[in-house]
Amino acid sequence: MSTHTITTQKVNFKVFRFNAEDDYLPYYENYSMDVTSEEVVLDILNRIKWDHDGSFSYRRSCRHGICGACAIKVNGRSTLACKESMTTMIEYFGNELTIEPLSTKRAVKDMIIDKADFWDKHAKVNPYLVADIDEAPTCENLVSPHEAEELDEADLCIQCGACHYACPVVEINEDFFGPAAFAAAYRFESDVRDSDADRLIAVNEEKQGVWDCAKCFECAEVCPKDVNPISKITKLHQMAFKKGVAKNNVATRHAVGFFHSIKKRGVLDEGGLVLYSEGPSIVKHIPVALQMFRKGKITMPWNMPKSDNLDEIQKLIKSSSTVKF
């Protein structure tokens, strides 16, 4: 029989407290506890409520990483409380831990937030199967294992909101759907049975859609179910080109511009890329470009570098391209 030693260490918690009905401003309460290596973050929330202050409020239900209710932030990092071990949190952040709701701006009571923005955006991607289903089928609607693999585990999302409230773009741009909504969009876009015509268009609109993703990978890092939302965002970009939904705008030209530049020189022509992406709007970049020029940061077209063995690159582009725009 294997022996497993349980270790204990002292941790100081700084806990966000706020009651929207009574409090003018939020405040923090401090608790010191001995934490064992066996405990998860939810155990700490329970102990605060049961041992220290019965009025402390948070959402919890399944305790098995399925319902998605108990996501909060520890030292600014989104965390599903019932799944995250305290050992990992101490490893990440040390023995001084700050417990906050997913979004302090949206706090209703302590850890409980108003998730309306999350659900509104989720609803906007039609997160359900759109299909002409025979109401009295004579046999099952089969999906092959190969086709099911296309979902790439996007169906594992439990809508906990960890990624949504970790996304820096959601924080700044209130129209942006966010990583969870995109993962849901991909889940149905990649389903062979689905025939929705609006979803992919909606997630390709400027401001709200995938093109505003900053590619920071915060969503992939925090997801408690390893859905890897940014990989789904990348796939939605690719789908937009493959299915001919991609509009001709600065964002799509920014992607296609890399293709043309690499085809021409192997390396990127930075100025050429900006010109190709922006078109006449390039004038707005002139002030910064002039500053950069004065500092020797702009390469003139006649000095533009090229990769050696460029013919190889051009041959590979010819034989390996899978997309046309």
Binding site: V256, F258, L268, S307, S320, T322
Partner: peptide, 19 residues
Amino acid sequence: LTEASCCGASHLQDYDDFL
């Protein structure tokens, strides 16, 4: 590596993954 091309900077990846 003077033969190297641009890595695609995650934007080529949005357009053509296999390439």
